[in-house]
Structures are given as C-alpha cells and as structure tokens.
C-alpha cells in the first residue's frame, strides 16, 4: 500500500514538471500551429546551462531557473524571428521539418560544447529525503515539483490575467482581427515562441537535477511531450496539465510494476491509443480543418 502511495506521490511531482514543459509546447501549437520538434532539445539545453552554472559558479541548480528562463526565452524569440517567421504561411509540415532541423543542430552544438557523455547535476541535497510515515520523498523531487508549480502558476497568471495574455489569445483565435484592434501579431507570436521555449528551459533546470542527461536525451523528451499534448488535446493548456499528471502516473506505474525498460514505450502507446480512440485528446476540440474559403 505504502509503495503505491509513494509511487503516486512521486509520479505527481514528476507530472508537475511535465506539465510545465508541455504547456510551452501546446501554447506554441495553439497560437501558431507549429509543432515544435526542437522543444526537447531546448529543454536539454536548459539542463546543460544549469550544469555549467552549478559546476563553474556553484549556483544552486534550482535557482538556475532564474537564469535559464530568460536565456532560453531570448533564444526562442530569436529562433522565431530568424527561422519560423519567414515560413509562417507555409504548411505545417514545413515547420515540422524546420524545427526538427533545429533540434538536430542544437543536439550537435551541445555535443560539441559539453560532450556526449552522461552529465549529472548533484547538489548537496540530492541524496536526502523527506519521510512522512512509511513514505519517503527525495528532497530534489519535492523542490523540483514546487519550483515547477511556481513557474507554471506564473505562466498561467501571465496568460489569463494580463493584457499580453489576452493579446495572445486574440492572435490565436483570429490573427487578422487581432491586427485590426492594434495587436502586433508578429510581436505576439515571437513572445509566445519565447515563452513556450522558456517553459522548456525552466523545466530543463529542474529535470537536470533529477535525471542524468546527454545531448541525445531530447528525443525521449520530445516523444514524452508530444504524447502529453496529444493526450491533452493539441493546443489546450488545461488539457496539457491534466495529461501531464495522467502521463506521469502511467509512466511511473509502468516502471515500478512492469519494468523500467518498458516505461520508455509508454509515450508511444499513449499516442497510438489517443489517436485511435479520441483524436482530439482529453480536452481538445476538433480543429476546424474544414474551414471554408468564403
């Protein structure tokens, strides 16, 4: 029984971190219909930046969020301006190929700078745990979960309570009308791309503490993230958060009760099952792919 409680508690903590990163991916899709295959690569980039800050300057890796968030935001903004904007009218497949290319380049750059050996961030608290009765929770997981929740709430406030959030939603719903009421859709899009990637960067700081990583880890992450946003419904923020928690549980339970090796198959199985049974995901609405030229 306590094993089950422990498993669930851990999986919800992990799920919170997934929720943060997946929100960024689904936001980018919801606003500009871009499936950002490079999302996992920027997450791992966040992990490597955090590693360097910790290794060279002794900065606590979870405080690294304060650095990785703005740095990756700026990168995302630049990526949008330089690469995505020129082909914003091209079909979705073009941006898939483009961001896939960016993911490979980022992987190659990380491999050149930090090497391809497994990297781990090990702050002082990495081996200690909180004990609640018979349940024990590693400190790093708890802190990581808390930081993820704080950033995620900040993200939500930004999107739902501010003028920028309304502008983003307006631009997502109807770009032409948004322009008419004075929203610079291009600037908003660049901000959204930056914000979405910043969520990946922030998540990277936390994830770097929890798991060892290599540049090639981004493939595993993009599969997880795609599974989460497909499960939640592409473009739905609430769906992404819900799906991230469900996914965290599914993955941890598989690892504990089946085998860790097969836990890596969970994302793919989820993608297949969702597309087969409910293509619009948990909270997604069917896209108006039938919109009429009239």
């Amino acid at each position: 029984m306590s094993e089950l409680v422990q498993t669930l508690a851990l999986s919800l903590l992990v799920g919170g971190i997934y929720a943060l990163v997946a929100s960024g991916l689904t936001l980018i899709f919801g606003v500009m219909r871009v499936i950002n295959i490079a999302h996992g690569a920027f997450l791992i980039l966040g992990s490597f930046l955090t590693y360097t800050l910790w290794d060279a300057l002794g900065l606590d890796p979870l405080l690294g969020v304060l650095v990785t968030t703005p740095v990756v935001f700026a990168l995302g903004w630049a990526v949008y301006r330089l690469f995505v904007r020129p082909i914003r009218d091209a079909p979705m497949s073009s941006t898939v190929l483009l961001t896939f290319g960016l993911a490979l380049v980022t992987e190659g750059v990380m491999g050149s700078v930090w090497g391809n050996d497994s990297t781990a961030i090990r702050p002082s608290y990495v081996n200690s745990s909180f004990h609640l009765g018979s349940v024990f929770l590693p400190e790093a997981q708890v802190y990581g979960g808390v930081v993820a929740a704080v950033v995620l709430v900040g993200f939500w406030v930004l999107l739902t309570r501010t003028w920028l959030g309304r502008a983003i939603r307006a631009a997502a719903t109807n770009p032409a009308s948004a322009e008419l009421v004075g929203i610079k859709v291009t600037s908003v899009a660049a901000l959204v791309f930056g914000l979405g990637l910043a969520a990946a960067g922030a998540g990277g700081s936390i994830i770097g503490v929890l798991y060892p990583f290599v540049p090639g880890s981004h493939y595993l992450w993009i599969s997880r993230l795609l599974a989460i946003v497909v499960l939640g419904g592409l473009g739905s923020l609430e769906g992404a958060v819900l799906a991230a928690l469900v996914f965290g549980v599914a993955e941890t339970v598989t690892a504990v009760y089946v085998s860790p090796a097969w836990a890596t198959a969970v994302p793919y199985v989820i993608v297949f099952a969702v597309l087969l049974v409910r293509p619009q995901g948990l909270l997604g609405t069917r896209l108006r792919d039938d919109a009429v030229a009239a």
Partner: peptide, 28 residues
C-alpha cells in the same frame, strides 16, 4: 488506419512515435 482517417498533424506525430517505438521494442 490509426492516423490517416483524420487530417492535420496526427500523421507526422504518429510517424515520430513509431520511429522511437520500434527501437524500444527492438531493444526490449
């Protein structure tokens, strides 16, 4: 059958998932 009944991004996502899934299966 899973992905081409509908339109939009389902197909490309399925192909990515498939690529990684077969590798996981071949390893395990």
């Amino acid at each position: 059958l899973v992905s081409l009944r509908t339109r939009g991004p389902a197909f490309v996502i399925i192909t990515v998932a498939f690529l990684f899934l077969v590798q996981v299966v071949a390893i395990n």
